[in-house]
Amino acid sequence: MKRIIVVFAGFFALAMSGCSTQVIRKDVAEITDLSGHWNDTDARLVAEEMVRDCVAGLWVGNFNKEKGRDPVVIVGTVVNRSHEHINADVFVQDLEMSLVNAGKVKFVASKTERGELREERADQQLNAAVPTRAQMISETGADFMLQGTINSVKDETKGQYAIMFQSNLELINLTTNEKVWIGQKKIKKLVKRSQYSL
């Protein structure tokens, strides 16, 4: 009888352990690939590498020589052309952060952010003390816009698939429409899935 109780207790403990929730805190820099889908690590790594490549391009030096100042860049739209719903905002924010941290270019707020800023500035003209008011018509205009796409190719066979994400970025001169820099970064993942588990 004792043996039966022990066996039942064992099964009960096993069943209960399956129901518990476990939370493990991870360093955001740590690579966590769970499913093979585009994730935060991909967005960060691609943004860092592409911006590094971008600001190392000849166009920065040429612009400095011609204008005598750092170029001003705005991040435009990154279009998702992959087969996954990707939150392009995360990628765009990573691009913006990398651009600011690179220190070689100036960087201005995006179209949607500008709307809120303009509203606040207009409000200050009515309500803020004169010496503290932000100046109207003093925005810094961008010289270049960074635009891009994210594409994907998936090759699948039974039990495994290879997936490639290709990010393309282009830096375009806002005055002349010239493309002064084109960058591409590919990420390839091989995902193996067993057909059976215990």
Partner: peptide
Amino acid sequence: FEKAKARTEELYTRSLLNE
């Protein structure tokens, strides 16, 4: 729909005990 798709993908691996 996204949850359904993700869970369907997870179900590719079949549990032997379940089978």
